[in-house]
Structure formats: C-alpha cells, structure tokens
Write a protein that binds this DNA or RNA. Structure first.
Lengths: 217, 217
DNA sequence: TGCTGTGAAACCGTTCACAGCT
DNA sequence: AGCTGTGAACGGTTTCACAGCA
C-alpha cells in the first residue's frame, strides 16, 4: 500500500498550495453545513475571495475530483480532500509551557476541534505540575515527555515557552517522538533533527503589520 | 517632507522582504547587545541561517547602508532600519475579546516590548468589563471602542474573539480609526474597509503542519 | 452549453556573478 | 583584498486561454 500504486502524491505540494487547500477544506465544511450539493470553482472563488483557476490547479496536484460541465460534489470533495490531506482523523497535541499562552491554547477551540485534541500540558514549574487547565487538561512535568507522548499517542507539539527555553524544548519534543512542532516562541530555532517546525511568531506578525502601516502616525 | 524628496520608498516591498527585514532587525538587536561594531552580509547569513545576497537585495530596496570592503555598521544599520520601517517608536495596541487568549496576549511580552504596548482589552461580557488582566490591563466595554482608541492613541487592533463575531469586531475596529488588524479568529474576513488585516490562523497553522506530517500514522 | 483539467504565457522572487568602491 | 550594490539568469508560481468531456 505504500508503493507507487496510487496516482497522486501528496508531496510536491508547495507551501502556498497546502495553505490554500486547507482553506478550501474549511470553505467546503461551510458548504456541507448548508446542504449544498455541487459547487463550481467559479462559485467557490466568488464566494470566498479566491481564484477559480487556482482552485482547479491546486486540486489537480492531487487528482481529478470534478465533473465537467457540473462542478464538484461538495460532500464528496470534502471527504476525499480530508482523507488525502490526512485531516480525517483526530491527532493528539501536547503543549510545552503551561503559562498564560499555553493554557489559553490548551483550552481553545482551535486546538480541540475536528482534527485535533490537546492531550496534556508540560511545564518545569513544580507549582503547576499536577494541576489542570480550566477545561481540565492535565499539567505534567516536562521530564515525562517521552512516556507521555507515547502514552497519549501525541503527534504534534506546541512550544509556548519563553524564547530562551525554546531550543531545548524543541529538542525534547523531537526526542520524545514528536515530528511536527508549532513554535510560538519568538526565537529562530535552527533545524530540529527529526521534526518539522512551523513558527507562529507573534512579535514578528505585529511588526510586519506595523510596517505596512508606514512610519508615519 | 512627505513629497518625493527622499530616495527610497517603503512601499513596493514584497511580503517576503518585509518579513526578512523584520527578522534582520531582530538579529541586529542581538549584535548590538554584543557590542559588535560591523558585520558583513556573509557573516549575518552564516550566523542566522539566511542568504547573504538576499540580505543585500532586501536592503537595496530601501537605500544604501553598507561600506564596500567593510560591511555594515551594526548600530547605524539597526537605527536606520528601525526608523525606515517605523519600528523606532511604541505603538499602542488594543485587543478585542477578553477571553483566555485575549488576556494571555495582553499580558504577553510579545505584545509589550520595544515597539508595542497593550492599551486596553475590550469585551461585551458585563462580568468582565471593569476588571483587569493579571498585569493590570483594563477591560472596557466594546461599545467604547471609538472613544478609547482616540484616547489611547491606539493604532493596531487584535481580534481574539470567536469566529462568529470576527467580521463585526473588525468593522468596529476600523470604524474606530484602527488601520491595522491582527486577526486570531479562524474566519475568512472579507476585506475590511480602511484597514489592513493580517491573519494568524491557529487552526490553519495546525492543519498545514499536520498535512506536512502526512496522512499516515 | 458549461465547467473541468491543463499546456503555455506572464509574472515575481531568488540566486548568481561581477563591476565598482574603499 | 574585500565586500557592497546590482544587472542578468534562473526557477517557481500564478494567470490565461482553450481543448475535452458531461
């Protein structure tokens, strides 16, 4: 099953394409909720502010999904896309850093939706360890990462620690078997062996936004 | 002074360039702290995992900053870049949504550093209004946005509300005079008249990260 | 007819390579 | 000699335009 039997490979997708496909999936969920049966690339584009040709090109990377002269079957496309992108099941997330941000993320709907569930928080502060977040996510000691990750079946790690501790925490996550890391610390962590790192740099986001506003008042 | 007298225009910068320049500024701050006097594009590139030619190209958009045969004067470049990018002063930020995430952001170092300061939180929940965050940021009623923004001199707004309320809150911010919005709600807000919107979509970040991991286990 | 899927064209950003200062 | 600033080459992504199928 792992061989080259199936046609479309999920690699080779550019970062931009992945982002748009993920966004497309969100739009499809809306349309499914509306009980819409079929939709054309043009209709999708107009409604959600996208580009019709680009939608078709993006989908073309993964196979053929549409019906010429008709469009796409909403429910079918949604299901197939979810499956191909690996978003049709729940992945367990662990969060390192049980500060305000870490706990807020742990309790947030964003991190506990259709595809994700927060399994535990981790910290080195003994006063926090053993406690729980507002919604009941347990806070464990960071030293227990290896066992906890295995026990929970966690696949994704979130870094919500100060910049100074980010590098070390990232390596701890990778060492515990985590292969995808979402980093909220404003630190340029070098490549982490064995893991993909995605940075969500709040300071940087604010700065680039400010730059757009211009130097004036 | 606002006319075309000066040479470099701060427009025309691509998103990618703005991001790298902002990152470069962060690196320069580190070097300033280290009392380093001059640095070459190559040295910068090697130390921080960038590309030397790209650093030069990025800077070229804004003018000439270096000394041939020598490199860049660290302190000078930092000061001039800060000034051109408009990051040499403190901007006041307001946060709409005083839930866990909003309060965590309000108290975070990321939002209260060299260039930014959180002026107030806003919510429609009467039980929260009148209170303060852990570090003392006051929570006001969302209805007071226009006066508050003017009073605080706020320039940037942060959306930390549920997806359903995002569109309305964005328009309220724009209506109150805010021209830059950082949106944390997982919603595709259409263009907001008068304001630039930058999305920090946590759900999307998680999903794209998961996609990278592959559909398998 | 209407819409998908797709080669070709246009566009943009990155990388290369070197001329020009110091 | 050394490093910046930059025109030119390169590669990738987006957009266009249409052939092909329901």
């Amino acid at each position: 099953m792992t061989a080259a039997g199936a046609k479309p490979r999920r690699d080779r997708l550019s970062e931009a394409t992945i982002l748009r496909l993920s966004l497309l999936l969100r739009c499809l969920r809306v349309l499914v909720d509306e009980r819409l049966d079929t939709v054309s690339s043009l209709a999708l584009a107009q409604r959600f502010g996208m580009n019709a040709a680009q939608i078709r090109k993006d989908l073309a990377h993964l196979g053929e999904f549409g019906v010429r002269g008709v469009g796409y079957r909403v429910a079918d496309l949604r299901a197939r896309l979810s499956s191909i992108l690996g978003l049709d099941r729940v992945r367990v997330v662990v969060i390192v850093g049980a500060g305000n941000l870490g706990q807020a993320l742990a309790d947030s709907k964003n991190f506990n939706g259709e595809s994700f569930r927060v399994g535990a928080l981790f910290d080195v502060d003994g006063r926090k360890v053993g406690g729980r977040s507002r919604t009941g996510i347990p806070i464990r000691h960071a030293g227990t990462l290896p066992e906890s990750v295995a026990e929970l079946g966690a696949e994704i790690g979130v870094l919500a620690v100060p910049a100074e501790g980010a590098e070390e925490a990232a390596r701890a996550l990778a060492g515990a078997g985590i292969r995808g890391i979402l980093n909220f610390a404003p630190a340029n962590l070098g490549p982490v062996p064995g893991a993909t790192v995605r940075n969500v740099d709040l300071t940087l986001s604010l700065e680039t936004l400010a730059i757009h506003l211009g130097a004036g008042g």
